[in-house]
Simulated scan of single mutants.
Amino acid sequence: MRVGAHVSVAGGVDNAVGREVDVGGNCGQIFTTSPQVWAGPDIAEDEAAAFRESSADLGPWVIHASYLVNLATPKEDLREKSIRSLQAECDAADRLGIEYVNVHLGAHTGAGVESGLDNAASAVDELDIPADVTLLIESDAGSGTKLGGEFAHLAGILDRADAELGTCLDTAHAFAAGYDLSTPGAVEDVIAEFDRTVGLDTLHCIHLNDSKHGCGTNKDEHAHIGEGEIGDDGMRAIVTHDAIGELPFVLETPTEDGRGFAWNVDRVRELRGE
């Protein structure tokens, strides 16, 4: 099973590998810089080389784009900043030998869903995505004018963009957006709906998170695996499902109650029966 966590790059991106190993992960995710600012990746070549060498037996890895990126925006200045930021992350992934860059669609801020998807597709098509990097569009919790809460939004960007894109399904986001994942039957239904609407062939990564809030609340707050509203039954059904069980599962669970990523990685493996 491939399961890991979103770990820090403090002190150098190569330090992320040791942190992943320490929590028991064998794949992982990073921010290359603070996700709350427009500063781009600043990775020295020796750090990049050390990351590539030390992560040879781990993977895949994912770079999560800045939270400031808004591909769906109608505002030209924000659009240009978003494109530059995302291009820098794709280039960093290429340097680090990382397969995936993950991004949210953003918010249409009143322009409407169709216009937002058009904006997002045209922004993506301005990128020069390296041949060995795949850009993943992540599902969202669906609050306000944010796109990605409906599987149809993911299908919409894939249909519109000329670029070859993939998807990332976040379990807490999907649950918050109204896709029930709390029972084996519900999980089966949601995965079937995703396949019909988007296509499981596009799905490259699962952000495996439980939810502190109920289904359909649009509240994005992650919980420890099995201890949120999705619960053990739902989480077990997700990680053992034949159609997605071999995908990489990346945890973005909280550090609280004396438990962090290591506890959650162990819990996932227990639910998997490993």
Rank of each mutant, 00 (worst) to 15 (best):
G106Y: 06
F51M: 12
G40H: 00
F194I: 10
G185S: 13
G148N: 07
H173K: 07
A262T: 09
L271G: 03
L127R: 04
R2L: 04
N70S: 15
L200G: 14
A237R: 01
V3H: 11
A44F: 02
E45N: 02
E45H: 04
V37C: 12
L117Q: 06
A121H: 08
Y100K: 10
V250P: 15
A237M: 04
D170H: 10
H108E: 15
I206V: 08
V239P: 02
A123T: 11
L181G: 08
V103F: 05
R236M: 12
A16P: 01
D233W: 10
Q36D: 11
F175T: 05
D189R: 13
L200S: 12
K219W: 01
V62F: 01
V187R: 14
K219I: 10
A93D: 07
H222G: 11
L169N: 14
W61D: 00
L203C: 14
S54C: 02
G228D: 14
A237C: 00
L71V: 02
M1R: 12
A49N: 12
I137C: 14
E221L: 13
D125T: 11
W61Q: 02
E229S: 01
V239Y: 08
N102W: 04
V23S: 09
G40K: 03
D210E: 13
R269W: 01
V23A: 03
N70I: 11
A163K: 09
I244W: 10
D233A: 15
A120G: 13
E20T: 10
R267F: 03
W263I: 12
R160K: 09
C205I: 07
H108D: 15
G110H: 07
A49W: 06
W263V: 09
L86C: 03
P41K: 00
G258W: 13
V239S: 10
E256S: 15
T33V: 05
D210Q: 12
L165H: 11
S115Y: 08
D195C: 13
D42S: 12
C27P: 00
